[in-house]
Write a protein that binds this DNA or RNA. Structure first.
Lengths: 349, 349
DNA sequence: TTGTACGCGTTATCAT
DNA sequence: ATGATAACGCGTACAA
């Protein structure tokens, strides 16, 4: 087992100084052709590569991006990562990931871990617990130490930094407008409790669309579900709530759900109650998932372009990292809004 | 904007030497209570944290794991990552990811990038292109430089290293046995071409089960699909092939598919042909996806326990990193086999 | 009890 | 044309 070779070893082996080796390898005109030739051949033979860690220390630049997300087993987030990774690699950066698992303390710990020199900047989406606690000190501290942050999707206006968000309001609104255009007269909303900003915005889009169309807003048609009912676990409870909604509002002929799972559950319950999709009831989900395409019937969705979000976030961060910022130049941050697309499938007419 | 504080700055500020500060912070008995108190208070005030990069350089240990996977937008791989991250964090390691995107050259480049000091060891799953080319020099080179590798799922016997694999053979066999027990008389197999080892093993499990039960092996019942037909893209082509299989073998009353998408497509085609599931035809998929649970009917699957694989791989790697290896001790590698579970849902009787 | 010197691997600057 | 030195930030063996 041969350890990785260093400049020092090459220097000793060829009986020259370390700096000569360094210069020869970087093709410095200071060095004679002879020596260059000799050193480069030797280096190639032993497959010399400069040590990243030493370079990072010297340059005070790691060329690594830290990404903190609440959950990786989630189509939306993994697509964002793919986008980040794509751009980062293209521009010479690595990506290191930290999972907050929706927990405030894990978010804080992970960020502290990475902020101590391991990375040049963060791309992150805030955990639910942090949003509930509204404790953002760790973001401010990180930034005040000169480490830039780009937030995506789950952002808060309290923090001053670059952001990439989806047009949640507009996407939701146009989805509901689609249902209205398709003839729906009584449209239900299945959403989450309000503390996650994106949920709130989507709810507003729903309301605005109804309002514009001159519909009455009926609070019984709005189902606000607890987040604990998310994902795999309490599928039954989820379906029960939806079933109750349908049963007490028999006229419902359209459903807008703020995520894929809610939309699928709605379809499942509808089928169970003997309703035909899209004849009797039409469904649209806000999502970036895989389920929609393969469900029966396939689900019409509002696409969030997660990968584009990741790419954009990475570009924003790297641009900021590589732009010379004078000390007393007042930093101006931008918020990029990604427009959604309505992908029409078989759950709407 | 205050930059991160260093030992040197604290030393200058308090008018002591750097090493005094260092010792005081590590609570060395060499230092007087007074000085310790003073230094620690100051450090706390300025929120001092040692620089990871400097520590890595000094200790020649990064406490970071590199993970190379073919694709991140994939339920199986993201679950593995979650497992790795869980264990890594618990044991004081960070995780840095590289995506090969199923490409040989990207796999090589990514590994070289990380191997130059950024990480202590690799956890990886081989890309399809690499498996086709059978070019494994980059793995051997990495290991010969003293950097350990743990492979998972897609492994090759040519390489001598720790491995974590699924019991593909056994899982497939018991799935097919289940179909037989449930009364199936004519069981089709939908699989991929053979160069991906896991596909081959699952095919063997299928054949073994049939053999044990005294069934005739009928080659028309085996559908070997091109990998290019995978995933999102050529869904139609996929379904056409399956439809052709069903139409030319009307007696088929059971299907074993080596992945989730194939299984779902089989169900879709079956429904289209007027077959009832599971009454007329039963289906089982080998998978770790989200689709199974939410399909109609929900799909009986062979669970691979992806997260456990990740956890196990991380433990293997970290154990090796932290065990003192004498120079001339012949290393002995282990292969951990994760047993599968049959998750019975509505696509079987 | 405190400080000095050294080394991790690299590059830039200055001296020879 | 080549080499010595300092510096990035840290910890530790050794000296004072």
């Amino acid at each position: 087992m041969k350890r990785k070779i260093t400049l020092k070893q090459i220097a000793r082996e060829l009986d020259v100084s370390i700096s000569t080796v360094s210069k020869a390898l970087r093709n410095s005109p200071e060095i004679s052709a002879d020596t260059k030739q000799k050193v480069q051949a030797f280096a190639k033979l032993y497959n010399y590569r400069p040590n990243n860690i030493a370079l990072s220390l010297k340059n005070r630049k790691t060329n690594t991006i830290g990404i903190i997300i609440p959950e990786i087993v989630h189509h939306f987030f993994s697509k964002v990562i793919r986008g980040v990774e794509l751009v980062a690699n293209k521009r010479g950066y690595n990506v290191i990931i930290g999972l907050s698992n929706e927990s405030f303390s894990k978010e804080v710990i992970n960020m502290e871990m990475l902020a101590n020199g391991s990375i040049d900047g963060f791309i992150l989406s805030i955990s639910k617990e942090t949003l509930q606690l509204q404790d953002y000190h760790h973001f401010n501290e990180t930034m005040s130490q000169g480490m830039p942050i780009v937030m995506f999707d789950r952002v808060v206006s309290d923090i001053n930094c670059d952001k990439v968000i989806v047009n949640d309001f507009g996407g939701a609104k146009s989805a509901v407008e689609k249902l209205i255009t398709n003839g729906c007269k009584s449209i239900a909303l299945i959403t989450t409790k309000d503390y996650v900003s994106v949920g709130k915005l989507r709810t507003q889009g729903y309301m605005d669309a109804l309002n514009d169309a001159g519909f009455e807003l009926e609070s019984e048609l709005i189902l606000k579900l607890d987040d604990k009912l998310d994902y795999e676990v309490h599928l039954d409870a989820l379906e029960n709530e939806i079933e109750h909604l349908f049963k007490s509002n028999k006229s419902v002929d359209g459903v807008f759900a703020v995520n894929e799972l809610y939309a699928l559950s709605a379809m499942k319950v509808a089928r169970k109650l003997g309703l035909e999709i899209p004849k009797d009831i039409q469904v649209i989900g806000f999502t970036d998932g895989v389920l929609s395409k393969h469900s029966t019937p396939s689900l019409t969705t509002v696409s969030q372009h997660a990968q584009v979000m990741g790419e954009k976030a990475a570009d924003l961060l790297i641009n900021r990292l590589e732009t010379e910022h004078n000390e007393n130049e007042d930093e101006t941050y931008q918020t990029v809004v990604i427009e959604t697309d309505l992908i029409e499938r078989k759950s709407t007419k």
